[in-house]
Write a protein that binds this DNA or RNA. Structure first.
Lengths: 348, 348
DNA sequence: AATCCCCCTGCACACGTGTGCAGCCATCCA
DNA sequence: TGGATGGCTGCACACGTGTGCAGGGGGATT
């Protein structure tokens, strides 16, 4: 069959089998309304003719496309890629397809994506780490489709969310650093408008306070969630003493940037500076030293999101806000502070 | 509108405008057959009613879904993620959607993907780095859809390909190492059945031969395209002297694994061992030392694949095999061999 | 033997959109 | 003023599938 030829339809099968197309439809759906013999014969003929049902036509009548839309800021982010994998996995297991839309963090493109997804009549939409998450809520009225937000809590009808407990993650980092003996820790955050960034900071602060410590405003820097932000953050910290002995980073990319800057400045990690990341991306193991980090269950995040979407479509009333607990992965980028560290002018 | 409400159709608009649905259809398509005034009025009403055309119904009659299927081994691979980004980008610009299928390198899942894509009536399929590429050719007869293979050359009707010139890439690596003065270089490859791996090896050999050198069989090791393969490869090389002074790796992941093994064995890179990767993934910059590597135009690979698919669907006869040229990116993982290196027993 | 009932099959319509063709009305030309 | 022409609109069908309803036929029961 050449690419331009039209595929065999249910009617073609019906003609070959000498029955009506209704009977074929029922036979292929394994309906009890069709006699066992007829059913078997039709199924055989359909197979022989290479029949494949048209999800298009089916979708038109059933109003279900068995397809969900997935909007991501960028698939090139290893954290997001892992989440997507979880979504893909459970989608395939449930015979669902996912239409991927890479908005490239551009709100205009993101809107174009949503418009397309609406035309394609996807059954639901999953959005990961969008900064314009709240933008969807007004759009929802026109959308008429359930939306699951990943790591972007947002209350609202028809808007659900699955997220990592950022506060708890921050707390783990703070508690760990404090227990190592650090008394002067800094924070290099994510994009200024990211809710998750302030949550992680607050969590960290809460833990430090239990030890009588805090992160002063001068040591809480904004970033961008990428290596550049980490690099700039540490550069800035090194310009104004006294230096921190540890830096908690918004995510692993930021930590990797911080690591570069520290090395470039002649500091040893973790000897002179301890670093804690967030996410536990695959590459955290491969930098030198391997990154101690707060691990999110990335795969699970995707799976739960997809499961939630399926449950909603199945008509089950589900809790609208699932939160997953992160945990600390101890590797080699942290150590107790060197005696006398954190003083106005380090050796250099 | 609640999620379960049905969207407004072209007929609803027609009723509101007091015309037939045909006229609405034409007006929205900006057909010259409709009077300018009527057209404007209808478009306004449609907008006010929040009408969105149903790609489902349209697809049924036009036999075009404006959707392509994308089959990947795993989206978690940063190289593939970058390619996907290129595809996504040009797809969105052409108002096409892409259905992503992560086969997890499992042939069975891969087949399930293709079956689903067929049901969804995608206009074309793009496959990246599948090892079972040749498996698609027999399937094509039932498929009736053009297929574009990325980095998986395979002649055949209705099967097209966009690929990186692996031989040339290998040649670049070999030439570079030879010009640095290395006389004993090893190769740690990809999966044994990967055609690209033998191409890169052969290209490298060709360059070395121009300098009177070669890669003996004992120094050409198989791998798996992941860090584990690189690690195992270098471990093996270090077990049997004389050691190579440089290792050309199938890809960056392999090189990163090789780097770990070398460090673990107390070797310094590039002092004691030079390393060349392949792909130039984003993380190649962040390992220590930053990786010298053969860069593939990943984004372009995706773009060209999508462009090719669009051209084919547009009825243009296109050349079926596009090959892109890689280039060397010099960073810090290579240096001239140390004097006396490559001898039976290194210092340790 | 007649009636009833059950099992199976087909008819017809619906889903939302695109399009060839016919038909209507107004305008223009003779 | 009558006919022709052209611009605009609606009718009807098609795309492929699902499903309520009617109807037919055969077996069982009375």
């Amino acid at each position: 069959m050449s690419p331009s030829a039209k595929p065999v339809s249910i009617k073609d099968v019906a003609r070959a089998a000498g029955v009506s197309h209704s009977t074929v439809s029922r036979a292929l759906a394994d309906s009890p309304l069709v006699a066992a013999g007829t059913k078997q014969r039709i199924q055989l003929i359909a197979r022989e003719m290479g029949y494949t049902p048209s999800a298009i036509a089916r979708g038109l009548v059933t109003r279900r496309t068995a397809t969900i839309g997935l909007v991501v800021t960028t698939i090139a982010d290893p954290f997001i890629a892992e989440v997507v994998r979880g979504i893909e996995e459970t989608a395939l297991d449930s015979d669902y397809s996912v239409i991927l839309c890479d908005s490239d963090a551009d709100p205009e493109r993101e809107l174009a994506c949503v418009r397309t997804l609406r035309e394609k009549r996807v059954d639901a939409i999953i959005v990961t780490s969008s900064r314009v998450g709240s933008l969807y809520v007004p759009l929802l009225e026109q959308l008429g489709v359930p939306i699951v937000l990943i790591n972007n809590q947002h209350a609202g009808r028809y808007v659900y969310s699955v997220r990592n407990d950022d506060r708890q993650g921050g707390w783990l980092a703070g508690e760990y650093l404090a227990s190592l003996g650090h008394r002067r820790v800094a924070y290099v955050g994510g994009p200024p408008d990211a809710h998750s960034s302030v949550e992680r900071l607050e969590g960290c602060r809460a833990a430090l306070r239990e030890h009588g410590l805090d992160i002063p405003g001068a040591l809480a820097l904004p970033g961008d969630g990428r290596t550049g932000g980490g690099q700039a953050g540490v550069d800035l910290l090194l310009q104004r003493p006294p230096h921190p002995t540890a830096v908690f980073c918004y995510n692993d990319m930021t930590a990797i940037g911080a690591l570069r800057a520290a090395k470039a400045a002649g500091l040893r990690v973790p000897g002179d500076l301890s670093l804690v990341g967030y996410d536990d991306i695959a590459f955290a193991v491969f930098v030198d030293p391997p990154l101690t980090t707060i691990a999110q269950a990335k795969r699970a995040l995707g799976q739960r999101a997809m499961d939630l979407a399926l449950a909603i479509l199945d008509g089950q009333e589900e809790t609208g806000d699932i939160v997953l607990t992160p945990h600390l992965v101890e590797r080699a980028s942290c150590a107790p502070p060197a005696p006398g560290a954190g003083m106005p002018t380090p050796s250099r």
